[in-house]
């Protein structure tokens, strides 16, 4: 078996490859469903219905897609520059911490100022976390994968400490949770009788803005150049360290946004189960979208659909909802292979 680079790649191939890959992934996971003894079509039917089958299901899926979109963007921006930020989970919690600090009575402003304040604070907190990994990467060439990953555990323990100590709401009856965000800071609902909140629109706008920056600005050009070929970028006079710092701040800021949307939009107060791994799922979102900011919107909604649909599927038929994580993982690997096959063709001799 050998790989040959394709001379020309048609646009349709690039667009259809991920779709085909997801089809393959669904076929592969149906093996697991058969093992559970349930009917594959029935199971997928329940999943589809639970994700998109009703107004309630759809709004729940879009609500779940909100943080995924933001952490997905965080990963997409960083991976474009080959800065492997695997720490979105920790940065999300830092954003949520900042929102809790600012939004639980420290300041009281009109909502038009209060909500932007929370987002700015969350983004700063998310970005600051990455200063250490960026410094270590550029000065000591310490691998950022491991530092950002390990910081997740440190931050989660720190949040745990704060929730059991200084930040614990005295009215919480002993539960480790922080005080509620004040009314001025709560993100308004954008659809009646649903949990869908302003955060979704902010996620979509962020995606469009990131796409614009990456596509049409000098910063975006520099980020892509550093990702494609660092030595060529240096030769062209681009400072790699500065670009990586910029990427890290944008990436951490987006993950911080996700923390703000969850605290101020969905839950209302900070707990330790604020994020069931949105930071890690964001990596899958970015990979499914081939790191394209606009693709992130679609892939976040797709992944959210799998998660929400699998929950309702596991209630309807006897299949553990961990199947959702398996489906996501298989889809990610299948999409990776399919995207490579758009660049290379396999020759079997």
């Amino acid at each position: 078996m050998r790989l040959e680079p394709r001379e020309s790649v048609s646009f349709w191939l690039v667009l259809l490859a991920p779709v085909g890959a997801i089809g393959v992934a669904l076929v592969l996971t149906s093996g697991l469903i058969m093992w559970t003894g349930e009917s594959v079509f029935e199971a997928y039917g329940h999943l589809l219905k639970g994700a998109f089958g009703s107004r309630f299901a759809l709004t729940e899926t879009l609500t779940r897609a909100t943080p995924l979109m933001l952490t997905g963007l965080a990963a997409a921006v960083a991976f474009r520059a080959r800065f492997w930020n695997i720490g979105a989970e920790g940065q999300l919690y830092c954003g949520a911490l900042a929102a809790t600090y600012l939004g639980t009575g420290l300041v009281t402003l009109h909502p038009t100022l209060m909500i932007p304040l929370l987002f700015v604070g969350g983004a700063l907190a998310g970005g600051v976390v990455l200063l250490l990994p960026v410094y270590l990467k550029s000065k000591l060439s310490v691998d950022e994968v491991v530092t950002t990953l390990l910081l997740n555990f440190i931050i989660l323990l720190f949040v745990n400490y704060l929730l059991e100590g200084p930040l614990r709401d005295p009215m919480s009856m002993g539960w480790p949770q922080a005080a509620a965000i004040i009314d001025e800071g709560v993100l308004p609902r954008i659809m009646e009788k649903s949990r869908l909140h302003l955060g979704f629109i902010i996620g979509v706008i962020s995606a469009v803005m990131v796409w614009f920056v990456m596509r049409f600005t000098i910063w975006g050009y520099e980020i892509r150049a550093v990702g494609h070929n660092p030595s060529a970028a240096t030769f062209a006079g681009i400072s790699i360290n500065l670009t990586v710092l910029r990427v890290a701040l944008i990436s951490g800021g987006l993950a911080g946004f996700a923390g703000v949307t969850e605290v101020a939009g969905l839950k209302g107060y900070l707990t330790l189960d604020l994020s069931p791994g949105f930071g890690y799922a964001g990596i899958a979102v970015a990979m499914l979208a081939n790191l394209h900011p606009l693709g992130v919107i679609a892939s976040a909604i797709f992944l959210a659909g799998i998660y929400v649909g699998a929950d309702s599927m596991s209630r309807a038929v006897n299949i553990p909802n961990y199947i959702a994580d398996v489906m996501v993982a298989v889809s990610v690997l299948a999409v990776l292979v399919s995207l490579m096959l758009t660049q290379y063709r396999v020759r079997v001799r």
Binding site: I283, P320, V326, A329, L333, L336
Partner: peptide
């Protein structure tokens, strides 16, 4: 690829 393997292996273990 490694991150994908981690996702797959841990979710399969739990499932």
């Amino acid at each position: 690829s490694g991150i994908g393997i981690t996702m797959l292996a841990s979710s399969l273990s739990f499932f």
